[in-house]
């Protein structure tokens, strides 16, 4: 019973094995990819392990406080930022091994040529609630 974030990067992860930009895939390959992702989420809901998922737009803005009575300062997007998150899925599973197994399956989503992308996903555990008994 632990939650994990499966993090997909636009940038910042090592290169995938089948590393072809999506706009070079055929429309049918894109459809197959989307279908795979939907099926994967549906399957996780069925196993009682799905918590949520979200895709993010590639462009973001940095914002910070600029002092009392002043509007926040915005900056960016920064083209040089190394890490760019594309989206995530949150799962609730019984073990770390199960989290790895599912990330592996998600990474097998089909891409160019209908072959698995073998994309690198980052698996990050959630910090939990503190246990009552620690002594």
């Amino acid at each position: 019973m632990a939650k994990y974030l499966l993090l997909k990067h636009y940038r910042g992860a090592p290169a995938a094995v089948n590393d072809v930009p999506m706009d070079r895939w055929t429309p049918a390959e894109i459809s197959a990819h989307v279908q795979y992702m939907n099926d994967f989420a549906a399957r996780l809901e069925e196993t009682g392990e799905f918590v949520g998922s979200q895709a993010l737009a590639p462009e973001g803005t940095f914002v910070r406080y600029d002092g009392e009575g002043r509007p926040p300062v915005t900056d960016g997007p920064f083209a040089e930022t190394k890490d760019l998150v594309a989206g995530w899925m949150i799962i609730d599973v019984d073990s770390y091994e199960r989290a790895l197994e599912l990330a592996g399956e998600l990474s097998a989503a089909p891409g160019a040529g209908g072959k698995p992308i073998h994309e690198w996903l980052e698996v990050r555990p959630f910090l939990t609630a503190p246990p009552t008994i620690t002594q």
């Binding site: 019973m1 809901e45 069925e46 196993t47 009682g48 392990e49 799905f50 918590v51 609730d92």
Partner: peptide, 15 residues
């Protein structure tokens, strides 16, 4: 209580 969607918990229970 376990911070998961109700649909997920329903499936976990019926499974």
């Amino acid at each position: 209580a376990y911070l998961v969607p109700e649909a997920t918990m329903a499936q976990r229970i019926s499974r």
